[in-house]
């Protein structure tokens, strides 16, 4: 136990920095994934052919093993001299986050009660007003569930990013492996788990806070 405390004392600031780095990597990827995925998911509800195509592509993307995708990013991004580090990891995480976000947005908007939509049309709302005042608020909890899935997946996969020099908590684990240091491995894992729980808790809070009272059950 003493050893533990000593270890944590020495490494506290480094653990903290790596956690922040991890959070920024995942956070930035999720943000961009949202900017792509939510509008795309909404657009897909107006085009069934495209919906099928896009969801198929996204689901194949999610089956690609993470280390393989990270690995392939290296030579691909080397073409533009960004082979290692933040950018390839970031792009890979954006890709992984697409499926849950697009799929949940698409199904949620599509499942908005048609009567409610009719009522909105009856009230003379324009399509944009309808989207922002009726459809998105009602689809919100399901969209948030998709975002939560994406975040949890990405925090886990982000660990592997350490192998392509993107930093983050994976660094503790990879170093622990090369040095045979279980303290490092366990600390890294626990930090990842805690980060995942905090992020999920935060998203649940947002979901509760902004879900219209009438549809929260």
């Amino acid at each position: 136990m003493d050893k533990w405390i000593k270890f944590l004392e020495i490494n506290a600031s480094r653990i903290f920095d790596l956690t922040i780095e991890h959070a920024i990597l995942v956070g930035a990827a999720i943000l961009v994934a949202l900017l792509i995925g939510v509008p795309l998911g909404i657009y897909l509800t107006t085009n069934d052919y495209l919906a099928e195509t896009v969801l198929q592509i996204a689901s194949v993307m999610l089956t690609i093993p993470s280390i393989a995708l990270f690995g392939v990013m290296i030579p691909v991004f080397s073409i533009v001299n960004l082979g290692i580090g933040f950018v390839p990891a970031f792009v890979a995480l954006v890709l992984y986050a697409q499926l849950p976000i697009i799929r949940n947005t698409y199904t949620a908007i599509r499942n908005v009660d048609p009567e409610m939509r009719d009522a909105a049309i009856g009230l003379g709302m324009k399509p944009i007003q309808r989207l922002f005042r009726v459809e998105i608020p009602n689809a919100f909890p399901v969209i948030m569930a998709g975002i939560r899935t994406a975040v949890v997946i990405n925090i886990g996969i982000g660990v592997i990013a350490a192998y392509i020099g993107a930093g983050g908590l994976g660094v503790l684990i990879t170093q622990g492996i090369t040095r045979g240091d279980n303290y490092l491995i366990i600390t890294g894992s626990v930090a990842v788990a805690i980060l995942a729980m905090i992020a999920d808790g935060f998203l649940i809070w947002i979901q509760k806070r902004y879900t219209p009272k009438s549809i929260a059950n």
């Binding site: 690609i64 280390i67 690995g71 290296i74 030579p75």
Partner: peptide, 29 residues
């Protein structure tokens, strides 16, 4: 091969490992 490729900056090993794994996953799915 994937890790060898990453460590040695050898795209050949990398791709020769990564693509078969990916195809395997997609195929099994």
């Amino acid at each position: 091969w994937i890790f060898t490729g990453i460590q040695l900056f050898d795209n050949g090993y990398l791709i020769s490992g990564a693509i078969p794994v990916t195809l395997l996953a997609i195929f099994v799915d």
